[in-house]
């Protein structure tokens, strides 16, 4: 290694790009102030917070909160449920907005296309509380729409979907999909709109069928966008978010629906234990970090898509 040479080169590069550094200065400063400074709050995972002493001077308690969590009798169930639900919502759900964007792209009437697109993203604006209330009506035993339809066909209409474990993941997954598919597809629509039309024209001249065009032009063109979104969302496998699950939980499906986030809400914050909630947040953050680094490596190696 020619160390000197490298260093000289490095200095030259830095000087050459001084404008780019200027562009980055506000960004770095902002992230230090608004993201890293408040992270001192993570210390509370190891401290007992005192109002008067503040975060820095509150007394240390070591790994007490972590021990509490690892001694919690339902720990394994919580982790398992979190990972399963997170997997459904991030990995399984991942291709759907892409497919939707591709399908929307093939709609011929431009008016209908615009209408579909506008309508499809509306559910993003309804809160989970309202969605859950509608779902409960839809899925109610005997009186719910689904059971009524089953009744017309002469089937048993007493199924209590929300009280049975086996239906929970599908209910959760499809309601998630319904609420997010349109919104999440916007980014792919934008990516598709950036594809050079000449590529398609050339393909048509070559006699390529629609499916082939999609496979050989569209998908490779939005590969980067897809990859980046996958990498960024992979951490959500463990950070699932609590609202939807919390609202669809019943005693009947609790065993598969209780996740870390609902647990933190129930135990951590409600009992005034900031430390406990922070400790679990720190743990999930670390796991998420590991997952993202791993995914980033894999994607970099095999698909040349990467964040860093």
């Amino acid at each position: 290694m020619k160390v000197f040479d490298d260093r000289r080169k490095l200095h030259r590069e830095i000087l050459r790009h001084w404008m780019l550094y200027i562009m980055l200065v506000p960004c770095v400063v902002w992230f230090i102030i608004f993201a890293y400074v408040p992270m001192t709050g993570l210390l509370l995972a190891f401290k007992e917070f005192h109002f008067t002493k503040g975060i820095l001077e509150s007394p240390w308690v070591g790994f007490k909160y972590f021990e509490n969590f690892f001694n919690y009798f339902e720990r394994d169930i919580l982790i398992r449920n979190t990972l399963v639900i997170g997997f459904f919502k991030t990995v399984v759900a991942f291709p759907f907005p892409v497919v939707f964007a591709l399908m929307l792209n093939e709609v011929r009437s431009s008016g209908f296309k615009k209408l579909t697109q506008t309508v499809s993203y509306l559910p993003h604006f309804i809160s989970w509380a309202v969605v859950a209330a509608l779902l409960m009506r839809l899925l109610a035993p005997d009186t719910g729409l689904i059971n009524q339809v089953k009744g017309i066909w002469g089937l048993d209409k007493s199924t209590f979907y929300l009280m049975e474990e086996k239906y929970f993941y599908s209910i959760m997954f499809f309601s998630h999909l319904w609420k997010t598919i349109g919104w999440d597809s916007i980014i792919y629509l934008a990516a598709i709109s950036g594809i050079n039309p000449e590529l398609y024209e050339a393909a048509i001249i070559d006699g390529a069928k629609k499916l082939k065009q999609v496979w050989h032009i569209t998908i490779p063109s939005i590969k980067f966008t897809m990859g980046i979104i996958l990498i960024m969302s992979i951490g959500n496998i463990i950070k699932t978010g609590f609202e939807q699950v919390y609202l669809l939980r019943t005693p009947g499906n609790m065993r598969v629906a209780d996740i870390l986030d609902t647990y933190v809400i129930r135990v951590g914050i409600q009992q005034g234990e900031y430390g406990y909630a922070t400790a679990i947040g720190l743990l999930t953050g670390l796991v998420a970090l590991f997952m993202v680094i791993f995914t980033n490596k894999v994607c970099k190696k095999y698909f040349e898509v990467y964040i860093w």
């Binding site: 992270m39 709050g41 922070t278 993202v292």
Partner: peptide, 9 residues
């Protein structure tokens, strides 16, 4: 994007 120190700080 993975860690947050909470609301107090």
């Amino acid at each position: 994007s993975l860690f947050s120190g909470g609301l107090i700080p």
